[in-house]
């Protein structure tokens, strides 16, 4: 018996250890390297950064020299470009999350109240775009939004506007892109929480004389709060660091932090500065990411019951 449980323990350890070590090496360790590199200096070499710790031999004495360059962080807080990138990302992510919620909630609500037979199909219709390439879906908007694009052609065609609307290469293009790309992430958790709601609660409220809009605000919305939180986090966190959407649909004025990081890395080859940008972005996202994890973990154990 004892031997069997020891074998069982060994088997369990193996099941945990393999993914654990993999994630430690390829997910956790890289962050520590980013942190380390954010204190390095950029040089023209391969790789293009200075070591932090060096063993120096000066006149026969050995020195272990640790050089931490805080210049990258100082630059981030003094140069207008970086502050503007962070603030812009925050604003754009918040506004897009709000718009996504405003569009996603009625959809999720209608899906949850749809006849049961139709729900599986509606659910699949929401999930399907999520499987199609993100890049392609963003690309699809270029042809629609540009000045001589389909939207403007349609609007001028029906005589609604005379001058084309300039949407592509502005903040509006980015809002549309983010809302469009992340809408399924908002609808799915909302649907999950609205679908399992006990409808007799609404009937009870109605029996007690509550008008429908009031029952909605005081019963439905509070009960769907977990879904609202999950959906907003799933949109807000990736939108903060978004690169493809502001790059393809935004203009040169639309600086977002993901785009700035990309430019520092690929165009200026300043790896240490790009690392510092990533560290600050991660610090800004720590609270929402931990909130998200808590919620996912709670949901996981709720399933177990």
């Amino acid at each position: 018996m004892n031997g069997e449980s020891r074998a069982e323990r060994r088997r369990r350890r193996l099941v945990v250890a393999v993914p654990y070590l993999w994630l430690a090496l390829f997910f956790l360790a890289p962050f520590l390297i980013v942190l380390k590199l954010s204190f390095a200096e950029v040089v023209l070499a391969r790789p293009p950064y200075t070591p932090l710790i060096e063993l120096l031999d000066e006149a026969g004495s050995l020195y272990l020299q640790v050089r931490l360059n805080i210049g990258n962080y100082l630059l981030l807080f003094s140069d207008d470009l970086y502050l503007r990138s962070y603030l812009n990302s925050l604003r754009i992510a918040l506004v897009s999350t709000a718009i996504t919620l405003a569009i996603g909630y009625p959809m999720a609500y209608a899906m949850a109240r749809a006849p049961e037979r139709a729900r599986a199909l509606l659910l699949m219709l929401v999930i399907l775009p999520f499987w199609t390439s993100f890049l392609i879906r963003v690309y699809a908007w270029i042809g629609i939004l540009k000045n001589e694009g389909l939207l403007n052609a349609a609007l001028t065609g029906i005589g609604l506007i005379d001058e084309p609307l300039v949407i592509l290469n502005t903040d509006w293009g980015v809002y549309i892109g983010i809302v469009y790309s992340y809408l399924p992430f908002m609808v799915l958790p909302l649907y999950a929480s609205l679908e399992k709601m006990d409808l007799t609660l609404l009937e009870a409220a109605a029996d007690l004389g509550s008008p429908p809009w009031k029952s909605f605000w005081s019963v439905t919305v509070p009960l769907s709060l977990p879904g609202i939180l999950a959906g907003c986090l799933l949109v807000f966190i990736p939108a903060m660091g978004e690169f493809v959407i502001p790059d393809l649909l935004g203009g040169s004025e639309t600086v977002m932090i993901g785009k700035t990081l990309w430019a520092e890395f690929f165009n200026n080859r300043d790896w240490p500065l790009a690392s510092a940008i990533a560290v600050i972005l991660l610090l800004l996202l720590v609270v929402p990411i931990v909130l998200f994890q808590r919620q996912q973990a709670a949901r996981g154990s709720e399933f177990g019951k």
């Binding site: 994630l23 090496l25 956790l28 390297i33 986090l233 990736p238 690169f243 990081l261 998200f292």
Partner: peptide
């Protein structure tokens, strides 16, 4: 830590994941 490492990649901005993995490989 393990749960954290499972859930974090789901929302982690891609620029951070990409940069950090590149630095590891380098």
């Amino acid at each position: 830590l393990f749960t954290g490492m499972i859930y974090a990649p789901l929302v982690m901005p891609e620029v951070i994941t990409g940069l950090s993995l590149l630095l590891l490989f380098v």
